[in-house]
Amino acid sequence: MSIQHFRVALIPFFAAFCLPVFAHPETLVKVKDAEDQLGARVGYIELDLNSGKILESFRPEERFPMMSTFKVLLCGAVLSRVDAGQEQLGRRIHYSQNDLVKYSPVTEKHLTDGMTVRELCSAAITMSDNTAANLLLTTIGGPKELTAFLHNMGDHVTRLDRWEPELNEAIPNDERDTTMPAAMATTLRKLLTGELLTLASRQQLIDWMEADKVAGPLLRSALPAGWFIADKSGASERGSRGIIAALGPDGKPSRIVVIYTTGSQATMDERNRQIAEIGASLIKHW
């Protein structure tokens, strides 16, 4: 058993032996400061991975655009179909130039040979490839079927209504393609630790998130040596930015963190910096 498999397999085991986890309101002070700095709403939640207890939250039940963070949920739905014998990670999917949409750094290189379902999930999560996400959405029946999958998990909040890139429109008060921090954190925890997916599929999902290559300026920039993080970021119109993550010290995840912001006029660099500073406060007061 690899170190990674050891880590995921023991998450339920550690729940019975973990020390009490204490919240630190200092992080919420930073979240509120980020709102002031960005001139935008910020949603935040910090969840204990083992118990599911909410440690801190700010606007946990307000809607925010999901942006590309939905791609983790999408690959969770794909893995659920794999577990049920309805899909194979090794199945190759062929597509054409007409299928390519904006920001497809991986799929645009494989027009001649296509990509496997496994490769598409990797591209969608680690590189946020939009065509990969659309191709995967097609395999499960489209955005409405992803919403149905989430409903069956008990998440009646999170919804996907459109495809890439239209889902990134982020119109104020538009509930399409949105979630709430509390709903996203709970759903992510179920995917990573619950019985919905097999152990192998849970491991695969967290491996893809751990290999994320496009979230460096966010929480990863504040991470001390030896800490673990598996994450997925997102960005969209109207100053929207977000990240969902499982992270913790000693090389294993122990908390879920979800951060969303929307409605800012700030630059992408400034949005990144504010999220990184929230992460730094979280780690300092861990």
Rank of each mutant, 00 (worst) to 15 (best):
2 S>R: 12
3 I>D: 10
4 Q>H: 12
4 Q>L: 12
4 Q>A: 13
5 H>P: 09
6 F>V: 12
6 F>L: 13
8 V>E: 11
9 A>I: 12
9 A>L: 10
14 F>I: 15
14 F>L: 13
14 F>Q: 04
15 A>S: 15
15 A>G: 15
19 L>H: 15
21 V>S: 15
24 H>A: 10
25 P>S: 08
25 P>N: 08
30 K>I: 08
32 K>T: 12
35 E>A: 04
36 D>E: 15
36 D>A: 14
38 L>C: 06
38 L>Q: 06
38 L>S: 08
40 A>C: 10
41 R>D: 05
41 R>I: 07
44 Y>A: 01
44 Y>H: 01
44 Y>C: 02
45 I>S: 04
49 L>R: 02
50 N>R: 15
52 G>N: 07
55 L>G: 04
56 E>D: 09
58 F>G: 00
59 R>S: 14
60 P>N: 07
66 M>S: 03
67 M>I: 03
68 S>V: 00
68 S>R: 02
68 S>L: 00
70 F>C: 05
73 L>G: 04
75 C>V: 13
77 A>K: 10
78 V>G: 00
79 L>I: 03
80 S>K: 14
80 S>G: 10
80 S>R: 12
80 S>V: 10
81 R>K: 15
82 V>S: 07
82 V>Y: 06
83 D>G: 04
84 A>R: 15
84 A>C: 09
85 G>D: 11
87 E>L: 09
87 E>C: 05
87 E>Y: 04
88 Q>E: 14
89 L>M: 09
90 G>Y: 12
90 G>H: 14
93 I>T: 03
95 Y>G: 00
96 S>T: 15
96 S>Y: 11
97 Q>Y: 13
97 Q>P: 15
97 Q>V: 12
97 Q>S: 15
97 Q>D: 15
97 Q>C: 09
99 D>Q: 13
101 V>A: 03
103 Y>C: 05
106 V>D: 07
108 E>V: 11
108 E>G: 12
110 H>Q: 07
111 L>F: 11
111 L>H: 10
115 M>R: 04
117 V>E: 00
117 V>D: 07
118 R>Y: 14
120 L>S: 02
123 A>T: 02
124 A>N: 02
126 T>G: 10
126 T>A: 10
127 M>L: 11
127 M>R: 10
128 S>G: 00
129 D>L: 00
131 T>N: 02
134 N>E: 02
136 L>V: 05
136 L>A: 03
136 L>C: 03
136 L>F: 02
136 L>Q: 00
138 T>H: 14
143 P>T: 04
143 P>K: 00
147 T>N: 12
148 A>I: 12
149 F>Y: 12
150 L>M: 08
151 H>C: 11
153 M>Y: 07
154 G>E: 06
156 H>P: 10
161 D>R: 00
161 D>S: 04
163 W>Y: 11
163 W>L: 08
163 W>Q: 07
166 E>R: 07
166 E>D: 13
166 E>L: 09
167 L>S: 06
168 N>M: 03
168 N>D: 03
169 E>K: 05
169 E>L: 09
170 A>P: 09
171 I>L: 13
172 P>F: 08
172 P>H: 09
173 N>T: 11
174 D>T: 05
174 D>I: 00
175 E>A: 11
178 T>C: 05
179 T>K: 00
179 T>S: 06
180 M>H: 13
181 P>A: 04
182 A>K: 14
182 A>P: 04
187 T>N: 10
187 T>A: 05
188 L>F: 11
188 L>K: 00
189 R>H: 15
190 K>T: 13
191 L>I: 09
191 L>R: 00
191 L>E: 00
197 L>R: 03
197 L>V: 03
199 L>I: 14
200 A>C: 12
201 S>G: 09
202 R>S: 12
202 R>G: 07
204 Q>V: 11
207 D>H: 14
208 W>L: 03
208 W>V: 00
209 M>S: 00
210 E>A: 13
211 A>K: 15
212 D>I: 06
213 K>R: 12
213 K>E: 12
213 K>M: 12
217 P>Q: 12
217 P>A: 13
218 L>P: 01
219 L>V: 07
219 L>S: 02
221 S>R: 12
221 S>F: 07
222 A>G: 09
223 L>E: 01
223 L>P: 02
224 P>T: 04
224 P>Q: 04
229 I>L: 07
230 A>T: 00
231 D>S: 06
231 D>R: 03
237 E>W: 05
239 G>A: 05
241 R>L: 01
241 R>E: 00
241 R>I: 00
242 G>L: 01
242 G>H: 03
243 I>T: 02
243 I>Q: 02
244 I>S: 01
244 I>D: 01
246 A>D: 01
247 L>T: 03
247 L>R: 00
247 L>W: 06
247 L>P: 01
248 G>E: 01
249 P>L: 03
250 D>H: 13
250 D>W: 08
250 D>F: 10
251 G>A: 08
252 K>F: 11
252 K>N: 10
253 P>I: 07
253 P>E: 05
254 S>P: 05
254 S>A: 13
255 R>D: 00
257 V>M: 05
259 I>L: 08
260 Y>C: 03
263 G>A: 12
265 Q>S: 14
265 Q>D: 13
265 Q>V: 15
267 T>V: 08
267 T>K: 09
267 T>R: 09
267 T>Q: 08
268 M>R: 05
268 M>S: 06
269 D>E: 14
269 D>M: 10
269 D>S: 10
272 N>S: 06
274 Q>L: 14
277 E>L: 11
281 S>V: 14
281 S>F: 08
282 L>R: 01
283 I>K: 03
284 K>A: 14
285 H>A: 06
